[in-house]
C-alpha cells in the first residue's frame, strides 16, 4: 500500500519547487501589499472618482475566480505585446487579484481608528500627508497584522494554481513526480501535509508578531 521510498529520490525536485513557490509568494506579497495600500487609500479618500474606481476594482477581483484571471493574463498579455514568462505572469496577476483583498483589510483597519486621535492630530496642525504617514497608517497596519496574515496565507495556497500555466512550483513539480513514480496518493498526501505545516508555522509567526506590535494597545490583540 503506502510506499514512500519511491518519492525519496525526488527530494531535490521538491526543494526546487518549494523555492519557486517561496519566490512567487514573497514577490506577490510585496506586490499585493503595494496594490492593496493604494486601493485602501482610494477607498477611504474623499475623491468620488477614486472611490468609485476602487470600489469596482475590489468588487470585480473578489468575485472572479483566480484561475480565470490567470488564464486571461497568460493568454491575454502576449496579445497586447507584453511577453513575460509564467513566473512573472503569476506574480503580476497574484498581486493584482490579492491586492483587492489586502485593500479591504487595510480599509477595515483605517475605519476602525478612533476618530478622537485623528481630530487631535488635526488640531495640532498635521497636514493630510503627515496625518496618514504618522498616525493613520501605522495604527491601522499594526491592528490588521493578523487579518493581513490570513490574506497572505491564502495567497501562498493560491500559488498552487500557477501549476496550470506550466510553472513548476511545488504543485507543478509534484504532478511530474506523481506521474513518474506512479505513486500519486503518497505524493499528494505529502503535499497536503507540507502546505498544512507551512501555513501552520506562518500563522504562528504572524500571531506572535501581532501580539508584539499590539502590546501597548488594549483592544485589537
Amino acid at each position: 500500500m503506502l510506499d514512500l521510498s519511491a518519492m525519496a529520490g525526488y527530494l531535490p525536485e521538491f526543494v526546487e519547487g518549494f523555492i519557486i513557490t517561496a519566490q512567487v509568494s514573497i514577490i506577490s506579497i510585496i506586490g499585493s501589499f503595494i496594490v492593496g495600500l493604494m486601493v485602501a487609500l482610494a477607498r477611504v479618500s474623499t475623491n468620488k472618482i477614486f472611490n468609485f474606481i476602487s470600489l469596482i476594482y475590489v468588487d470585480l477581483f473578489r468575485n472572479i475566480p483566480f484561475i480565470v484571471l490567470i488564464f486571461f493574463g497568460y493568454y491575454g498579455l502576449p496579445e497586447i505585446g507584453i511577453y513575460i514568462n509564467a513566473f512573472w505572469t503569476g506574480c503580476l496577476v497574484l498581486s493584482i487579484a490579492v491586492g483587492a483583498y489586502v485593500g479591504e483589510t487595510i480599509r477595515a483597519g483605517i475605519l476602525g481608528i478612533d476618530k478622537g486621535i485623528v481630530e487631535a492630530a488635526r488640531s495640532f496642525g498635521f497636514s493630510k500627508l503627515k496625518l496618514y504617514r504618522k498616525i493613520i497608517l501605522p495604527i491601522s497596519l499594526t491592528v490588521s497584522v493578523r487579518p493581513l496574515g490570513s490574506v497572505f496565507i491564502n495567497l501562498i495556497l493560491t500559488t498552487s494554481i500557477l501549476s496550470t500555466i506550466t510553472l513548476n512550483e511545488l504543485t507543478g513539480v509534484s504532478k511530474v513526480i506523481a506521474s513518474n513514480t506512479f505513486r500519486p496518493f503518497e505524493v499528494y498526501v505529502f503535499l497536503v501535509l507540507l502546505y498544512g505545516a507551512l501555513t501552520f508555522v506562518i500563522s504562528g509567526l504572524i500571531t506572535l508578531w501581532h501580539k508584539r506590535l499590539n502590546r501597548y494597545l488594549e483592544e485589537g490583540v
Binding site: I153, L157, T158, S160, I161, S163, T164, T171, S174, K175, A178, P184, F185, Y188, V189, L191, V192, Y195, G196, T199, F200
Partner: peptide, 13 residues
C-alpha cells in the same frame, strides 16, 4: 490549510 487544487489531485489521481 492546503490548496483545493492539491486536494482535487489527491482525490482524483
Amino acid at each position: 490549510n492546503s490548496p483545493v487544487l492539491v486536494q482535487l489531485f489527491l482525490v482524483y489521481f
